[in-house]
Protein backbone atom coordinates (compact mmCIF):
# COMPACT_ATOMS: atom_id res chain seq x y z
CA UNK A 1 0.00 0.00 0.00
CA UNK A 2 1.41 3.40 -0.97
CA UNK A 3 2.35 5.60 1.94
CA UNK A 4 -0.41 8.16 2.51
CA UNK A 5 1.90 10.91 3.72
CA UNK A 6 4.17 10.49 0.70
CA UNK A 7 1.17 10.62 -1.64
CA UNK A 8 -0.05 13.80 -0.08
CA UNK A 9 3.32 15.43 -0.47
CA UNK A 10 3.56 14.42 -4.13
CA UNK A 11 0.14 15.88 -4.83
CA UNK A 12 1.32 19.16 -3.36
CA UNK A 13 4.44 19.15 -5.54
CA UNK A 14 2.51 18.45 -8.71
CA UNK A 15 0.02 21.19 -7.87
CA UNK A 16 2.82 23.69 -7.42
CA UNK A 17 4.40 22.69 -10.71
CA UNK A 18 1.04 23.10 -12.45
CA UNK A 19 0.69 26.57 -11.00
CA UNK A 20 4.06 27.59 -12.42
CA UNK A 21 3.53 26.09 -15.86
CA UNK A 22 0.06 27.64 -15.99
CA UNK A 23 1.45 31.07 -15.19
CA UNK A 24 4.18 30.63 -17.83
CA UNK A 25 1.54 29.61 -20.32
CA UNK A 26 -0.48 32.77 -19.70
CA UNK A 27 2.59 34.98 -19.95
CA UNK A 28 3.66 33.28 -23.19
CA UNK A 29 0.15 33.63 -24.60
CA UNK A 30 0.07 37.38 -24.10
CA UNK A 31 3.62 37.80 -25.37
CA UNK A 32 2.75 35.67 -28.36
CA UNK A 33 -0.17 37.89 -29.25
CA UNK A 34 2.02 40.96 -29.11
CA UNK A 35 4.85 39.32 -31.05
CA UNK A 36 2.46 38.16 -33.78
CA UNK A 37 0.96 41.60 -33.92
CA UNK A 38 4.35 43.16 -34.46
CA UNK A 39 5.15 40.66 -37.20
CA UNK A 40 1.88 41.60 -38.93
CA UNK A 41 2.55 45.32 -38.55
CA UNK A 42 5.73 45.01 -40.59
CA UNK A 43 3.94 43.30 -43.51
CA UNK A 44 2.81 46.37 -45.49
CA UNK A 45 6.34 47.77 -45.54
CA UNK A 46 7.80 44.41 -46.49
CA UNK A 47 5.28 43.81 -49.26
CA UNK A 48 5.74 47.24 -50.76
CA UNK A 49 9.52 47.12 -50.60
CA UNK A 50 9.61 43.66 -52.19
CA UNK A 51 7.32 44.86 -54.96
CA UNK A 52 9.39 47.93 -55.73
CA UNK A 53 12.64 45.96 -55.60
CA UNK A 54 11.25 43.26 -57.87
CA UNK A 55 10.29 45.92 -60.42
CA UNK A 56 13.65 47.67 -60.18
CA UNK A 57 15.76 44.54 -60.31
CA UNK A 58 13.95 43.32 -63.42
CA UNK A 59 14.63 46.67 -64.99
CA UNK A 60 18.30 46.48 -64.09
CA UNK A 61 18.83 43.06 -65.64
CA UNK A 62 17.50 44.25 -68.99
CA UNK A 63 20.16 46.83 -69.53
CA UNK A 64 23.87 46.27 -69.58
CA UNK A 65 24.71 48.37 -66.58
CA UNK A 66 26.73 46.63 -63.89
CA UNK A 67 24.65 44.90 -61.25
CA UNK A 68 24.90 45.98 -57.65
CA UNK A 69 27.54 44.12 -55.58
CA UNK A 70 24.85 42.80 -53.25
CA UNK A 71 23.24 41.06 -56.23
CA UNK A 72 26.33 39.51 -57.82
CA UNK A 73 27.21 35.99 -56.82
CA UNK A 74 30.93 35.22 -56.75
CA UNK A 75 33.00 32.09 -56.22
CA UNK A 76 32.31 30.86 -52.71
CA UNK A 77 35.31 30.59 -50.42
CA UNK A 78 33.72 31.44 -47.09
CA UNK A 79 30.17 31.08 -45.89
CA UNK A 80 28.38 32.83 -43.06
CA UNK A 81 25.24 31.64 -41.33
CA UNK A 82 23.11 34.07 -39.37
CA UNK A 83 21.50 31.78 -36.81
CA UNK A 84 18.50 33.20 -34.96
CA UNK A 85 17.33 31.41 -31.83
CA UNK A 86 15.57 32.24 -28.55
CA UNK A 87 17.54 33.30 -25.51
CA UNK A 88 15.68 30.99 -23.21
CA UNK A 89 14.47 27.42 -23.04
CA UNK A 90 11.17 25.95 -21.87
CA UNK A 91 9.77 26.13 -25.36
CA UNK A 92 9.39 22.49 -26.30
CA UNK A 93 11.50 21.17 -29.15
CA UNK A 94 11.98 24.55 -30.81
CA UNK A 95 15.58 25.15 -29.77
CA UNK A 96 16.80 21.66 -30.54
CA UNK A 97 14.96 21.66 -33.88
CA UNK A 98 16.52 24.99 -34.84
CA UNK A 99 19.98 23.93 -33.78
CA UNK A 100 19.70 20.57 -35.51
CA UNK A 101 18.59 22.20 -38.78
CA UNK A 102 21.41 24.75 -38.69
CA UNK A 103 23.95 22.16 -37.50
CA UNK A 104 23.11 19.78 -40.34
CA UNK A 105 23.33 22.65 -42.80
CA UNK A 106 26.70 23.81 -41.51
CA UNK A 107 28.08 20.27 -41.54
CA UNK A 108 27.06 19.88 -45.17
CA UNK A 109 29.03 22.95 -46.32
CA UNK A 110 32.32 22.38 -48.08
CA UNK A 111 33.62 25.85 -47.33
CA UNK A 112 34.55 27.16 -43.88
CA UNK A 113 31.52 28.55 -42.09
CA UNK A 114 31.43 31.63 -39.86
CA UNK A 115 28.50 31.77 -37.50
CA UNK A 116 26.73 34.90 -36.38
CA UNK A 117 24.55 33.89 -33.46
CA UNK A 118 21.46 35.83 -32.47
CA UNK A 119 20.18 34.32 -29.23
CA UNK A 120 21.91 32.40 -26.46
CA UNK A 121 20.60 28.96 -27.33
CA UNK A 122 22.11 28.98 -30.80
CA UNK A 123 25.35 30.51 -29.62
CA UNK A 124 25.78 27.92 -26.87
CA UNK A 125 25.06 25.11 -29.30
CA UNK A 126 27.70 26.16 -31.80
CA UNK A 127 30.24 27.10 -29.16
CA UNK A 128 29.83 23.62 -27.71
CA UNK A 129 30.20 22.14 -31.19
CA UNK A 130 33.47 24.11 -31.51
CA UNK A 131 32.23 25.92 -34.61
CA UNK A 132 33.61 29.37 -35.38
CA UNK A 133 31.17 31.82 -33.87
CA UNK A 134 32.39 35.23 -35.02
CA UNK A 135 29.70 37.41 -33.46
CA UNK A 136 26.86 37.09 -31.00
CA UNK A 137 23.81 39.20 -30.26
CA UNK A 138 22.17 37.94 -27.10
CA UNK A 139 20.41 40.96 -25.61
CA UNK A 140 17.48 41.46 -27.94
CA UNK A 141 14.60 40.98 -25.52
CA UNK A 142 11.10 39.78 -26.28
CA UNK A 143 10.10 42.57 -28.63
CA UNK A 144 13.13 43.59 -30.66
CA UNK A 145 12.81 46.95 -32.42
CA UNK A 146 14.20 47.67 -35.81
CA UNK A 147 17.05 49.73 -34.39
CA UNK A 148 18.02 46.74 -32.24
CA UNK A 149 18.55 44.72 -35.39
CA UNK A 150 20.39 47.32 -37.47
CA UNK A 151 23.77 46.39 -35.99
CA UNK A 152 23.24 42.81 -37.10
CA UNK A 153 22.39 43.86 -40.65
CA UNK A 154 25.35 46.21 -40.74
CA UNK A 155 27.75 43.45 -39.71
CA UNK A 156 26.40 41.03 -42.29
CA UNK A 157 26.38 43.54 -45.15
CA UNK A 158 29.85 44.90 -44.32
CA UNK A 159 31.38 41.43 -44.12
CA UNK A 160 29.84 40.53 -47.42
CA UNK A 161 30.94 43.70 -49.19
CA UNK A 162 34.45 43.43 -47.74
CA UNK A 163 34.74 39.92 -49.14
CA UNK A 164 35.15 38.25 -45.75
CA UNK A 165 32.30 35.94 -46.73
CA UNK A 166 30.95 35.18 -50.17
CA UNK A 167 27.58 33.78 -49.26
CA UNK A 168 25.31 34.40 -46.30
CA UNK A 169 22.51 32.17 -45.11
CA UNK A 170 19.75 32.99 -42.69
CA UNK A 171 18.55 30.35 -40.23
CA UNK A 172 15.41 31.11 -38.25
CA UNK A 173 12.09 29.73 -37.01
CA UNK A 174 9.42 30.35 -39.59
CA UNK A 175 6.06 30.96 -37.96
CA UNK A 176 3.50 28.72 -39.67
CA UNK A 177 0.83 28.70 -36.98
CA UNK A 178 0.57 28.73 -33.22
CA UNK A 179 1.09 24.97 -33.24
CA UNK A 180 3.69 24.74 -36.01
CA UNK A 181 7.03 26.51 -36.27
CA UNK A 182 9.41 25.34 -38.96
CA UNK A 183 13.20 25.79 -38.88
CA UNK A 184 14.25 27.40 -42.16
CA UNK A 185 17.69 27.96 -43.68
CA UNK A 186 17.64 30.24 -46.69
CA UNK A 187 20.09 32.27 -48.70
CA UNK A 188 20.34 35.95 -47.80
CA UNK A 189 23.31 37.14 -49.86
CA UNK A 190 23.93 37.46 -52.74
CA UNK A 191 20.42 38.70 -52.85
CA UNK A 192 17.96 36.98 -55.09
CA UNK A 193 15.46 39.71 -55.79
CA UNK A 194 11.83 38.79 -55.20
CA UNK A 195 9.93 37.87 -58.34
CA UNK A 196 6.78 39.61 -59.36
CA UNK A 197 3.66 37.45 -59.35
CA UNK A 198 2.72 38.08 -62.95
CA UNK A 199 4.44 39.36 -66.05
CA UNK A 200 1.67 41.94 -66.08
CA UNK A 201 2.92 43.64 -62.97
CA UNK A 202 6.46 43.56 -64.28
CA UNK A 203 5.54 45.44 -67.41
CA UNK A 204 3.41 47.82 -65.37
CA UNK A 205 6.46 48.54 -63.32
CA UNK A 206 8.78 49.09 -66.22
CA UNK A 207 6.13 51.41 -67.67
CA UNK A 208 8.30 54.34 -67.14
CA UNK A 209 8.48 55.61 -63.67
CA UNK A 210 10.29 58.84 -63.07
CA UNK A 211 13.21 57.96 -60.82
CA UNK A 212 14.76 60.61 -58.67
CA UNK A 213 17.72 60.89 -58.51
CA UNK A 214 17.94 57.87 -60.85
CA UNK A 215 17.14 54.13 -60.97
CA UNK A 216 20.65 53.11 -59.91
CA UNK A 217 20.70 55.39 -56.90
CA UNK A 218 17.25 54.28 -55.81
CA UNK A 219 18.26 50.64 -56.19
CA UNK A 220 21.48 51.24 -54.31
CA UNK A 221 19.60 52.74 -51.37
CA UNK A 222 16.84 50.18 -51.56
CA UNK A 223 18.99 47.04 -51.34
CA UNK A 224 20.44 47.59 -47.86
CA UNK A 225 16.96 48.52 -46.61
CA UNK A 226 15.64 45.32 -48.08
CA UNK A 227 18.26 43.21 -46.34
CA UNK A 228 17.63 45.03 -43.06
CA UNK A 229 13.93 44.35 -43.53
CA UNK A 230 14.46 40.63 -44.24
CA UNK A 231 16.62 40.24 -41.13
CA UNK A 232 14.23 42.25 -38.99
CA UNK A 233 11.23 40.21 -40.08
CA UNK A 234 13.10 36.94 -39.56
CA UNK A 235 13.83 38.06 -36.00
CA UNK A 236 10.22 39.09 -35.43
CA UNK A 237 9.01 35.80 -36.80
CA UNK A 238 11.41 33.90 -34.58
CA UNK A 239 10.14 35.84 -31.57
CA UNK A 240 6.55 34.95 -32.42
CA UNK A 241 7.59 31.31 -32.93
CA UNK A 242 9.36 31.23 -29.58
CA UNK A 243 6.37 32.50 -27.65
CA UNK A 244 3.97 30.17 -29.49
CA UNK A 245 6.20 27.17 -28.89
CA UNK A 246 6.50 28.11 -25.22
CA UNK A 247 2.78 28.57 -24.84
CA UNK A 248 2.05 25.16 -26.36
CA UNK A 249 4.78 23.46 -24.33
CA UNK A 250 3.52 25.01 -21.10
CA UNK A 251 -0.05 24.12 -21.93
CA UNK A 252 0.98 20.48 -22.39
CA UNK A 253 2.91 20.61 -19.13
CA UNK A 254 -0.09 22.02 -17.28
CA UNK A 255 -2.38 19.38 -18.80
CA UNK A 256 0.02 16.61 -17.82
CA UNK A 257 0.35 18.00 -14.33
CA UNK A 258 -3.40 18.06 -13.76
CA UNK A 259 -3.64 14.53 -15.18
CA UNK A 260 -1.02 13.29 -12.71
CA UNK A 261 -2.70 15.20 -9.93
CA UNK A 262 -6.01 13.48 -10.73
CA UNK A 263 -4.42 10.02 -10.70
CA UNK A 264 -2.53 10.69 -7.47
CA UNK A 265 -5.65 12.02 -5.75
CA UNK A 266 -7.49 8.86 -6.74
CA UNK A 267 -4.74 6.66 -5.34
CA UNK A 268 -4.63 8.80 -2.22
CA UNK A 269 -8.38 8.51 -1.64
CA UNK A 270 -8.28 4.77 -2.19
CA UNK A 271 -5.46 4.42 0.29
CA UNK A 272 -7.23 6.61 2.83
CA UNK A 273 -10.44 4.60 2.49
CA UNK A 274 -8.54 1.37 2.88
CA UNK A 275 -6.94 2.67 6.05
CA UNK A 276 -10.29 3.71 7.49
CA UNK A 277 -11.78 0.34 6.64
CA UNK A 278 -8.89 -1.46 8.32
CA UNK A 279 -9.22 0.70 11.41
CA UNK A 280 -12.98 0.12 11.55
CA UNK A 281 -12.49 -3.62 11.21
CA UNK A 282 -9.99 -3.49 14.06
CA UNK A 283 -12.40 -1.61 16.27
CA UNK A 284 -15.33 -3.88 15.40
CA UNK A 285 -13.12 -6.92 15.90
CA UNK A 286 -12.02 -5.58 19.28
CA UNK A 287 -15.58 -4.77 20.34
CA UNK A 288 -16.81 -8.23 19.28
CA UNK A 289 -14.02 -9.86 21.29
CA UNK A 290 -15.07 -7.88 24.40
CA UNK A 291 -18.75 -8.86 24.05
CA UNK A 292 -17.96 -12.54 23.94
Amino acid sequence: MPNIRQLKRRIGTVKNTAKITNALQLVAASKMRRAQDRALQSRPYADKLSFVLAGLATKGSDSEEAAHPLLISRPVENVAVLHITPNRGLCGGLNSNLNRAAGTFVAAQEQPVNLVAVGKKGRDFFVRARASVVAEFVDLGDYPTQSDTLGISRLVIDDYLAGVVDRVYLSYASFVSTAVQRPVVKQLLPLEPPKLDTADEGSAYRADYIFEPGPEVVLERLLPRYIEMVIYSAILESAASEQSARMVAMKNASDNASEIERELTLTYNKARQEQITTELLDIIGGAAALED
Binding site: L56, D208, Y209, I210, F211, E212, P213, V218
Partner: peptide, 19 residues
Amino acid sequence: PGSEGQLAILPRHAALMTT
Protein backbone atom coordinates in the same frame (compact mmCIF):
# COMPACT_ATOMS: atom_id res chain seq x y z
CA PRO B 1 11.23 66.27 -48.64
CA GLY B 2 12.55 64.62 -51.81
CA SER B 3 16.28 64.06 -52.17
CA GLU B 4 16.28 66.49 -55.10
CA GLY B 5 14.35 69.10 -53.14
CA GLN B 6 10.90 69.61 -51.69
CA LEU B 7 8.23 68.31 -53.96
CA ALA B 8 4.48 68.68 -53.98
CA ILE B 9 2.26 65.90 -55.18
CA LEU B 10 -1.15 66.74 -56.58
CA PRO B 11 -3.72 64.33 -57.96
CA ARG B 12 -2.90 62.88 -61.42
CA HIS B 13 0.82 63.04 -60.74
CA ALA B 14 3.03 60.95 -63.04
CA ALA B 15 4.39 57.66 -61.71
CA LEU B 16 7.35 58.54 -59.54
CA MET B 17 9.83 56.74 -57.37
CA THR B 18 12.13 58.92 -55.33
CA THR B 19 14.33 58.75 -52.29
